[in-house]
Computed example of a mutant assay.
Amino acid sequence: MTTDTLDLQDMQAAAERACELMRVLANPDRLLICCQLSQQEMCVGELEASLGIVQPTLSQQLTVLRNADLVATRREGKNIFYQLTSTSALAVMNTLFQQFCTTPTTRSKK
């Protein structure tokens, strides 16, 4: 921790932003999507094939991620590509990967 202290209003604003990020990530489908997009940009068809999330659900969850400004899109022909652009979300995904997705021998034991 740093020696800088936040005043109460700044702490409350930071807590609100953190809670909003965690609320968006607290859905298994959205978490899987962010995990994939933390590794590389992908189009909807690639996400559907790799995650097994059916199109209507996938589109709905991508909309939530777009509305929360966690992902950005680009169009190439008929394909829409998504990438994780939120540095906060990427930091959370990296931590979650380290804590839950590595083998027990490489993970620190608590």
Rank of each mutant, 00 (worst) to 15 (best):
L31W: 11
E48I: 02
Q9T: 11
Q39Y: 10
C43V: 04
Q12L: 13
A91I: 03
V92Q: 05
S38Y: 11
V92F: 12
R107G: 02
T63W: 04
L96A: 04
E16D: 04
A15S: 10
L37T: 11
D29S: 15
E41W: 06
M1W: 11
F97H: 08
A18H: 08
L84M: 07
S38V: 03
F81N: 06
L84I: 11
D69S: 11
T103L: 06
V71Q: 01
R30I: 14
C35F: 15
Q9Y: 09
L58N: 08
L70F: 10
E41I: 01
A68M: 09
L21I: 09
Y82G: 05
Q83C: 01
T102P: 00
L70N: 03
Q55E: 15
T3C: 01
S86P: 02
C34S: 07
T57F: 13
T106N: 06
V24K: 03
Q99G: 00
L31N: 06
I33M: 04
S108I: 05
L37S: 10
A13W: 04
L96W: 05
S50D: 10
R23S: 04
Q55L: 15
S108K: 04
L62M: 09
R66Y: 11
S59C: 14
L6N: 07
I80A: 02
T87Q: 07
M1G: 14
L65S: 03
D7H: 11
P28M: 01
T2R: 12
A18E: 08
